[in-house]
Design a protein around this nucleic acid. Structure first.
Lengths: 69, 69
DNA sequence: CACGCCGCATAGCAGATGTTATATCGTCGG
DNA sequence: CCGACGATATAACATCTGCTATGCGGCGTG
C-alpha cells in the first residue's frame, strides 16, 4: 500500500541523528508520543498509515530546510 | 487532556458537508480509513493526537484554498 | 417490480498508540 | 566514589485504528 523503506527503524534513527533530536523531541515534532518513536526504532511496531505520512512529510520539510540529507 | 472542539463529531460532519465529500473521500484525504472517519462522526471514538493534528491541518489548507468557511 | 450500486452505520479482531511506571546506561559535578 | 540527571529500553493497560464483513435505505436502470 504505502511504500516504506525496507528498514524503517534504521531510517528513523538516522533522521533523528542527523537532526540531533532526542526520541522525545522527535516525537513532539511529529505529534506522537515518545513511546511510539521508541517502539518504531526498536522494531516493536510498524507506523500507522497516518504516522508514515506524517514522518515523510516531516522529512520532506527538513530536506527543504537543508537540515536533512 | 487533549483540547478539541466541544463537538468533534459535528465538526467533522460540517467540514465534510461543506467540501461535499463522502466519508470515504475525506478518509482518503486525511490518510485514515473510512471506518475511522465514520467512528469520529458517530462519537464512537475520539481522534488520536496525530489524527487531530492532521484534521486541523487539512481544514487550515482548505480554508486557505477558500473551500472552507 | 427486481436488481445493482452507493453512502452510511455497525461489529469483531488484530495491531498501533498514549500514558504511566520501572530499569539501565553514560556523564557530570560533588 | 556516589548521587543526580538525561536519554533510552521495556512493560502493562486502555483506547484508537485498519481491515473485513454485514445490514440498511435511497436511487437509477432494466
Amino acid at each position: 500500500m504505502i511504500r516504506q523503506p525496507e528498514n524503517f527503524p534504521e531510517t528513523v534513527k538516522e533522521v533523528r541523528r542527523q537532526l540531533a533530536l532526542s526520541q522525545e523531541e522527535l516525537a513532539h515534532a511529529l505529534g506522537v508520543s515518545f513511546a511510539t518513536v521508541n517502539r518504531w526504532e526498536n522494531g516493536k511496531t510498524i507506523p500507522s498509515k497516518l504516522a508514515q505520512r506524517q514522518f515523510e512529510q516531516f522529512c520532506a520539510l527538513k530536506r527543504k530546510q537543508g537540515k536533512l540529507a
